[in-house]
Simulated assay, not measured.
Amino acid sequence: MRTNAVIWHDRSSKIALIILWVARILFKPLLSLWPSNDFGIALLGRLSWLVDKLTRPPRAVHVTQTELGGVPGERIISPKPVDDPLEAATILYFHGGGFIFCGPSTHRQLCVQLALDSGAPVYSMDYRQVPAVPIAGSVQDAMNAYVALLEVAEDPTRIVVGGDSAGGYLAAKVAEIAARRGIQRPAAVIGYSPLLNLDLETHDPAYMAKDAYLPIKALGKIRPRWFAGEEAIEGEMNPVDADPSLFPPMFMCAAEYELTRPDVEIMTERLASAGRSVETHLWRGQIHAWPVLARAIPEAMELIGSSTRFARRVVTAVDDDKSA
C-alpha cells in the first residue's frame, strides 16, 4: 500500500472551539507559571491518580492490568467480534505528557475507542518518565514492551504502534530502532500530534507561540530534564532526522497551530519523497493531541476512526503481498 496524502480539515465543532479558547485563556498561562522542579513535576504526576479516582471503569470493553518486558500497563479488549484484517492485530500505545506526566488512566478513553474501532487488543503502557529517568529511559521501556509483545501477540507482523505527543515520539522510535536492530518492524505507526523533534526552538518562534495551550518557554525549562544523565538515546535523537526507509506506513495528525506541526509536515514530506506510505491530517480549530478527548469532541472520534481505517488498509496490503 502506498499513500502520500496531506488532508486539511476546516470544520470545527462548537465544543472543540470552546475547548480551544479555554485552553488558550486558562491552561496556557497556568502552564507558563508551573514550576519545572521535582515538586512541580510530582504535582503533575498526580493527574493520573486523580483521573483514575474520578472516572468510572469503561463498560464497553474489558480492562486488565498487565506488563510487557517489565513495563506495567493496561490491556483493553473489545468484546465485539470483528471479522476483518485487524482482528488478529495488536495495538501498542504510548501516552503523551511531555515525558513528565499522564499515564494509561488519562488516555483510557482514547485507547478504549481504538479497541472498539479496531477490534484489536490495545496495550497502553505506563513507561518511566522524568525525573525517574531521562527520555533515554522512556525509549528503553518502549522498546522492552515492544520486544515482549512480539512474543505474545497473536500475529507479530500485525502490531500497530501508536502514541500522542511524547508517546508519538516513542512510537516512532520503536519503529526506527526495530529496523536498526533488524527485528520484526511494526506494521504501522499512528502518531497523534507526535513529537518528532526534541529541538523545537529551531522553528519560527512567532509560529510556536500560537500553540493553544503549550508554552514553548515552559518546554524550554523542562528540556534539560529530558537529557539528565549520560545515557544516550538509541538511534537518532529526533525521529524526523532518521532515514525514512526505516519507517513503516505512518498515520499522523497535527492542529493548525501547535508545536509539533512543523515537524509532522517535514516528516510527511521526507517519507513521501522516499516513496514511503504516509497519511497526514491537519485540522483547524483543534488543540494539541485532541484525539485524547475521545467521546468529548466529534473531531477526536473522526480522527481515531481514520487512523484505524489506515491501519486496516496497511494490514490488508501486507496480506496481499504475502499471497502474491
Rank of each mutant, 00 (worst) to 15 (best):
E201W: 15
I190N: 07
A209P: 09
V174R: 00
A188D: 02
K173N: 11
F227P: 04
R181G: 00
A188I: 00
G168Q: 10
L196Y: 01
A206R: 15
A188C: 05
S193D: 03
V174D: 00
R181N: 07
R185Y: 07
A206C: 05
K173T: 03
L195S: 07
P224M: 10
G168I: 01
H203T: 03
R181D: 03
A228D: 07
G191L: 07
S165P: 15
L200D: 02
K217Y: 05
N197C: 11
I177S: 05
A179W: 13
A171G: 08
K217R: 14
Y192W: 07
A166G: 04
A218H: 10
A179Y: 09
P215L: 12
S165K: 02
I177H: 07
T202D: 08
Y207G: 10
I216V: 12
H203S: 08
D199T: 15
A179G: 06
G191K: 07
Y213S: 09
I222Y: 13
T202N: 13
D211A: 05
L170M: 04
R180Q: 11
I216Y: 11
K173M: 05
L214S: 06
R225A: 15
G167Y: 03
P205Q: 06
A206D: 14
K217G: 11
Y207R: 15
A178T: 02
R225I: 04
L200K: 10
K210C: 08
S165H: 04
A187H: 02
Y207P: 13
R180F: 00
R180W: 06
Y192V: 02
P224A: 13
L170I: 01
K210I: 14
A228M: 12
T202Q: 13
M208R: 14
E201R: 12
G167Q: 10
D204K: 09
I216K: 12
D204E: 05
P224L: 09
M208F: 08
G167L: 04
I222R: 07
T202I: 14
A175H: 07
G229L: 02
R180H: 02
A209G: 08
Y207I: 10
P194K: 01
L196A: 00
E176M: 15
K221H: 10
L200P: 14
G191M: 07
D211V: 12
I183Q: 04
G182Y: 12
L219A: 04
V174L: 03
G182H: 11
A218C: 05
A209K: 12
Y192D: 12
D211K: 14
T202A: 09
P215C: 14
P194E: 01
L200S: 06
H203C: 02
A209D: 10
G220W: 12
K221G: 07
I222L: 15
G167H: 11
I177A: 09
